[in-house]
């Protein structure tokens, strides 16, 4: 068994600290770059509440071209256009629901990341809870099967008989 001397110990610690600092620097650089990109687009609103609703809407609306991105994340021209439309509709005083309706009327329900429950989306909404239920049922069935068979009363009875036999045996030996 080798033992780390005091100075070796300090060297290892310094190496770890160095790695941690490098990792931190990398994280800061990535975050900084993301902030720089995000900072390019300046959106002006007449009221501060509108900005909050705008952020909420573009996070929940889906880019039709670059699928699997929302309007907020996407840099495609169509997303820029749609963000502008959302801003325009907000300034016109439409509610969130009305704005979504306007977009659905043009781009179909695809554009919503949280589509309404209807015949088309029943599978989408229903499948996860159904699978969860199925999983729970399978789990319960499996656990029930793996439990020891003998009932409690039966095993207590057995225990008594075993003890009686043992005692009988030891008495016979002592004789």
């Amino acid at each position: 068994m080798s033992k780390l001397t005091h100075s070796e110990n300090r060297g290892a610690l310094a190496a770890i600290a160095g790695h941690a600092a490098a990792a931190l620097l990398l994280v800061l650089m990535v975050v900084g770059a993301a902030r720089a990109v995000a900072g390019i687009e300046v959106v002006e609103f007449s009221e501060p509440q509108l900005r909050e609703r705008y952020q909420g809407l573009i996070a929940e609306l889906r880019c039709p071209k670059c699928q699997n991105q929302n309007l907020a994340d996407s840099n495609s021209p169509i997303s820029i256009d749609l963000r502008n439309e959302v801003r325009k509709l907000l300034e016109q005083g439409l509610s969130d629901g009305e704005i979504k309706q306007q977009l659905v009327a043009r781009y179909s329900e695809f554009i919503l990341y949280r589509p309404a429950v209807n015949a088309n989306t029943a599978l989408l909404w229903g499948l996860p809870p159904a699978l969860l239920l199925l999983g729970a049922m399978v789990l319960v069935l499996l656990r029930r099967r793996s439990q020891p068979r003998p009932a409690a009363a039966e095993s207590a009875d057995l225990q008594q008989r075993v003890e009686a036999l043992l005692q009988q045996h030891s008495e016979e030996q002592q004789r």
């Binding site: 039709p64 071209k65 169509i78 256009d81 749609l82 439309e85 043009r106 781009y107 179909s108």
Partner: peptide
Amino acid sequence: GFDLGVYG
């Protein structure tokens, strides 16, 4: 294009 839902 927007009214039509053009995306590409």
